[in-house]
C-alpha cells in the first residue's frame, strides 16, 4: 500500500512580497517554503505509515531546485520522492498541472489500496483545484477539506469539514483526499537520522521523454498551451491613503479616538 503526497514549493507570502514593475511577482527575491497545507497532508500520510507501515511517496511538479524540498520531506519520513520536471510542463494552469500529475501517478502505478493526499490549497494561488482535478482525471473519488483520516484495509473514514459543521464520509480506496490542518496534524520535524537517510532514499525525476507515451500526456492539455485559462491583465491595486497615527497611548489618546469614531458615526 502506498500513499502519494502531492506537494508544492511556494513563495513565503508571510514574508515580504516583491512585485516587479510590470505587475508580476518577483519570485527570485522571495524565500520559498513547502506549502503549509501540503506539510499537513504529509503528516497525515506519515501518521498512517506509523500505524500501517505503508509506503509514502512525495510528488511535486516544478523546476529542478524543488529537489531540496523533496529531500526535506524524505528527511521527515517519506520513503521516496518523485520530481516531475520538463520545459513542456511549464506555464500549466490547474487543469494542465493536474493532467501531468495524474499521468505521472498512472506511470508510477496506483493500486487498489493506494491513496493520494494533497494539501487543501497552496498559498501562492489559493485555488484548491489541482487535487480534485487529479481525482477527476484518474476517475477516483475525492474527499476535500479532510481533517481526520482513518484507514482500515481498503476503507477510509474521513471527517470532511464544512463551514457550519462536518460530514463523516466512508470511502473505498483508491481515492484522493485533500487535507486541512487540525489539532492533531502538526507536521513533525526532520530527525537527524532522517536527514542522514534523505540522500540515500529513492529519488526519481520524471521528464517529458519518460511520460510522453502516457495517454494523459496530450500536447494540447499540458503546459502553457494546454491551459484553458490565461492571464488577461495583471495589475497592482492603488495604495490606500495614509492613515492617522495618534500621539501617545494614554487616556487622552483613547478619548481622541472615541471622538473621531463619534464624528464618523461609527459609535
Amino acid at each position: 500500500m502506498r500513499i502519494y503526497v502531492c506537494v508544492k514549493q511556494v513563495p513565503d507570502t508571510s514574508g515580504v512580497v516583491a512585485v516587479n514593475e510590470d505587475g508580476t511577482l518577483n519570485r527570485a527575491s522571495m524565500q520559498t517554503i513547502i506549502n503549509p497545507d501540503d506539510l499537513v497532508a504529509m503528516e497525515q500520510a506519515l501518521m498512517i505509515k506509523d500505524a500501517t507501515g505503508c509506503q509514502v511517496t512525495a510528488v511535486t511538479m516544478g523546476p529542478p531546485p524543488a529537489e531540496g524540498m523533496l529531500r526535506e520531506l524524505l528527511a521527515m519520513g517519506a520513503d521516496d520522492a518523485i520530481l516531475i520536471s520538463a520545459r513542456e510542463f511549464g506555464g500549466s494552469d490547474t487543469f494542465a498541472t493536474s493532467q501531468i500529475i495524474a499521468a505521472a501517478i498512472t506511470y508510477t502505478g496506483l493500486n487498489d489500496e493506494d491513496m493520494i493526499f494533497c494539501g487543501r490549497q497552496a498559498i501562492d494561488g489559493d485555488t484548491a483545484q489541482v487535487g480534485p482535478q487529479i481525482a477527476e482525471k484518474l476517475n477516483l473519488p475525492q474527499i476535500s477539506y479532510a481533517a481526520e483520516i482513518k484507514k482500515e484495509g481498503n476503507e477510509v473514514t474521513v471527517k470532511r469539514m464544512l463551514e457550519d459543521g462536518y460530514m463523516m464520509i466512508k470511502q473505498q480506496t483508491p481515492c484522493l483526499v485533500t487535507c486541512i490542518s487540525d489539532q492533531d496534524s502538526h507536521p513533525r520535524m526532520m530527525s537527524i537520522a532522517g536527514i542522514n537517510a534523505a540522500y540515500k532514499k529513492p529519488y526519481t525525476v520524471l521528464d517529458f521523454e519518460t511520460l510522453k507515451d502516457e495517454p494523459l500526456i496530450e500536447l494540447d492539455k499540458i503546459g502553457l498551451k494546454g491551459s484553458p485559462t490565461n492571464i488577461f491583465v495583471s495589475f497592482t491595486p492603488p495604495l490606500k491613503g495614509i492613515g492617522v497615527m495618534l500621539e501617545g497611548n494614554d487616556k487622552k489618546t483613547t478619548d481622541k479616538l472615541a471622538s473621531m469614531l463619534l464624528e464618523k458615526h461609527v459609535i
Binding site: 512580497v17 505587475g23 511577482l25 492571464i231 488577461f232 491583465v233 497592482t236
Partner: peptide, 11 residues
C-alpha cells in the same frame, strides 16, 4: 493573488 498585492484578471 499573493494576498492582494497583485490582482489578476483571468479569461
Amino acid at each position: 493573488a499573493f494576498g492582494g498585492h497583485l490582482m489578476a484578471t483571468i479569461i
